[in-house]
Design a protein around this nucleic acid. Structure first.
Length: 273
DNA sequence: ATGGTAGCGATGCTA
């Protein structure tokens, strides 16, 4: 069984490239982030014709997450319990709307989540507190899922928007200098990320790809990819029972090449039967 | 070479 996660940065701009990836990589289940469309705009037909079932949640031109599967797709949920929302206007009395950043489904006996963690923007920005609250709420739920069933096969896949280690970016000092209040590298963000390990999960992409300066994202700006100024921000946290099944991980760097590439590349997990 | 990254959707916002 082969499972992958990929921030595609617009599914409508990338649909044919995603199909080509699915066929080339022989991927059974793909967790997608940043579809950048509403449900009715999602190009489902191109994937169903390729043999995949589709689940998607998207409310606007922002965010949006999907799961494609050719080995079954059931028990779909479009948010996790306690998922924080974000309110643009602080004076509203309505609860802040929950954004399309989490999609859960069961595929081939694995409980998968496609996750798009809020960017945070800057440490002085309200989105930074939102990001930390979002990660904390997810971690609390993930801990409960594992407590309820220690043998559960759970995969938390996606764009975490956290640089967990200094060697997960080309030059952390240069990155921090780039603008005041740089996110992704702060101690609270790294603690929020590491809390998934404390909850019993294992980040399996690094277990199998431990090399420093292994990146999953390169900005479109400033020749970031040709000069290899990348960041490692896409990860796969697995419950113990699932982590034990991971036999290999591939980070498909070639997907960043050429015209029409996303700024992220797929992270692919091979699971033993 | 008077540019600059890409996508959406409207001439700005987000990453």
């Amino acid at each position: 069984m082969r499972v992958a996660t990929w921030n595609v940065n617009s599914i409508r701009a990338r649909a044919e490239r995603v199909v080509a990836f699915l066929e080339r990589s022989d991927t059974d289940v793909l967790a997608i982030q940043e579809t950048k469309c509403r449900d009715e705009q999602f190009p489902a037909a191109v994937f169903t014709e390729a043999g995949y079932e589709v689940a998607h949640v998207g409310h606007s031109q922002w965010n949006g997450v999907a799961i494609l599967s050719r080995i079954g797709l059931k028990d779909v949920v479009t948010e996790f319990c306690g998922q924080p929302g974000f309110a643009k206007d602080a004076d509203t009395l309505l609860p802040p709307p929950v954004e399309a950043r989490a999609l859960g489904a069961t595929c081939g006996g694995v409980r998968l989540w496609s996750l798009y963690v809020p960017n945070g923007r800057a440490t002085c920005d309200p989105h930074y507190a939102y990001k930390l609250a979002w990660l904390r709420a997810l971690q609390e739920q993930a801990a409960e899922w594992l407590l309820a069933d220690q043998a559960a096969q759970i995969a938390l896949l996606g764009d975490w928007n956290v640089i967990p280690q200094d060697t997960d970016v080309w030059d952390v000092a240069d990155y921090a200098r780039a603008f005041p209040g740089a996110t992704h590298i702060t101690t609270p963000e790294r603690a929020a990320f590491a809390a998934f390990a404390a909850a019993g999960y294992r980040e399996v992409s690094r277990e199998h790809q431990p090399e420093p300066h292994t990146y999953t994202y390169w900005d479109y700006q400033g020749l970031a990819f040709p000069t290899n100024k990348g960041m490692r921000i896409d990860f796969a946290w697995a419950s113990p029972a699932l982590a034990d099944r991971v036999s290999a991980v591939v980070i498909d760097r070639d997907e960043r090449k050429g015209k029409g590439a996303s700024d992220h590349v797929p992270v692919i997990l091979d699971l033993a039967d």
